[in-house]
Simulated scan of single mutants.
Amino acid sequence: MKHVIALALIIIPCAAQAAPIYLKCQLNPGATGGGGGDDLISKAPMDVTLNEEAGTVTYLFPGVGRAYTVRAAFTSDKVTFNGFTVNRTNFVFQRDMSALQAPGRPAIIDEGRCWLAEVKRAF
């Protein structure tokens, strides 16, 4: 009986219990997106929580107190959500504003960087 249980535990695939990853991301100065007016993302860092197990990303604009939780596509080399992409190998951060462009216009893709955020918890 012990052997059957041990064999069953080996054969049954186990889901990874990955903890959420906390990042700060910021576009390079002079980002071209934003459609005129204030471009909050290019001016200040954005807090990003990657939850691969749930398939979601929560991103927060600390300056205005707005947070969004959305579905995300997690691949081996990048995470894509709502026009944003975070490269999992080199922390390159991109914002693709092409969906807002008129047909035939060049794509607007702004780049920046992400870094691991220090998270201090009380519990």
Rank of each mutant, 00 (worst) to 15 (best):
R71I: 13
T80H: 06
I109A: 03
G30P: 02
I108N: 01
P45H: 12
G83L: 01
A31Q: 03
I11T: 13
A99L: 11
A6R: 08
E111K: 15
V119W: 06
A99N: 09
V92E: 09
A6N: 09
I109Y: 02
V4C: 13
D38Y: 09
N87T: 09
G30T: 03
T56H: 03
Y22C: 06
I5N: 13
C114I: 07
I109M: 04
N28C: 11
S42H: 04
E52W: 11
K43M: 14
E118L: 13
F93D: 01
K2Y: 04
G104K: 12
V119Q: 10
C14Q: 12
A99K: 08
G36F: 05
F84Q: 08
M97K: 13
P29M: 13
L50I: 06
T75L: 09
V79P: 02
R71E: 15
V64Q: 11
R66V: 14
A54P: 06
G34I: 00
L7N: 09
V79T: 07
T32G: 03
A19I: 09
K43C: 10
L7S: 12
G55D: 13
N28G: 12
R113S: 14
A8G: 03
L9C: 15
P13M: 05
Q101F: 09
R113E: 10
G112V: 02
G35T: 07
G104N: 12
N28S: 14
E111H: 13
Q26A: 07
G83N: 04
V57A: 00
W115Y: 14
T80P: 04
P62N: 08
A54D: 06
N28K: 13
N87W: 05
T32P: 02
F84I: 08
P103K: 03
L40P: 07
L27F: 00
M46S: 15
N28I: 06
F93C: 00
D96V: 13
L27A: 00
T69H: 12
G33M: 05
N90D: 15
N87H: 08
C25N: 04
A54V: 11
L40C: 07
Q101T: 14
A72P: 03
K120I: 12
A54S: 13
L9S: 12
A122Q: 14
A73W: 10
T75A: 08
L9H: 09
G55N: 11
R113W: 08
V79I: 06
P106R: 10
T80G: 05
A15M: 04
G36Y: 04
G33D: 12
P13E: 04
T32V: 05
K2T: 08
N51E: 05
A122D: 11
Q101E: 15
A117Q: 14
A107T: 08
V79K: 02
L60F: 10
I21Y: 02
R88D: 01
E53M: 10
D39K: 00
T58H: 06
L116R: 05
W115E: 14
Q17T: 00
T49M: 01
K24F: 10
V86C: 04
L50W: 02
N82F: 00
A8Q: 03
Q94A: 02
A15C: 04
A102S: 11
G104I: 12
A54H: 10
F93I: 00
I12G: 03
R113K: 14
I10E: 07
A117T: 11
K2M: 07
I5P: 10
Y68E: 13
N90R: 08
E111T: 15
L27Q: 00
M1Y: 13
L50G: 02
S76D: 02
R66G: 09
